[in-house]
């Protein structure tokens, strides 16, 4: 925990915008961390999200392979293993208060996808 406090996040260039899949996810490896990246296109325009790829309940690296959608106004991904929903913006698990995953800032710059971690 302490190690993390002194760690300054950096922006990592991970892929071209075309590598993303609309309304679905892909996964990038940044150091040791697997990051699930989603591009959501709907009436409100295009949004990008990044959360940890580790499913803390199913205990496997699979979140990028889940179905995305909305629940009560929140944009979520459903874990492909046991179907819990994680809010993409924050990483909170809607079914379990005690569970969440990391959420990371994303931006797209000159068609490159950047993640801050």
């Amino acid at each position: 925990m302490q190690a993390q406090e002194s760690y300054t996040p950096q922006w990592h260039d991970v892929c071209h915008e075309d590598d993303l899949v609309t309304n679905s996810g892909v996964c990038a490896l940044i150091g040791e961390e697997q990051v699930a990246i989603f591009r959501i296109v709907n009436g409100e325009g295009t949004q990008y999200f990044a959360i940890s790829n580790w499913d803390p309940i199913g205990e496997a690296n699979v979140l990028y392979r889940g179905i995305v959608g909305s629940l009560g106004g929140k944009t979520v991904v459903a874990s492909p293993l046991y179907k819990e929903h994680y809010e993409l913006a924050t990483g909170t698990c809607l079914e379990r208060d005690d569970v969440s995953v990391n959420a990371y800032p994303v931006r797209v710059d000159a068609q490159r996808v950047l993640i801050e971690l």
Binding site: G58, A60, N61, R65, G66, I67, V68, P80, L81
Partner: peptide, 19 residues
């Protein structure tokens, strides 16, 4: 159709517990 499919259908296989 792709984003509609359950992961099993998307990857055309059954996901096991370790992914």
């Amino acid at each position: 159709h792709q984003p509609l499919q359950d992961t099993n259908d998307t990857y055309l296989g059954n996901m096991q517990k370790d992914g």
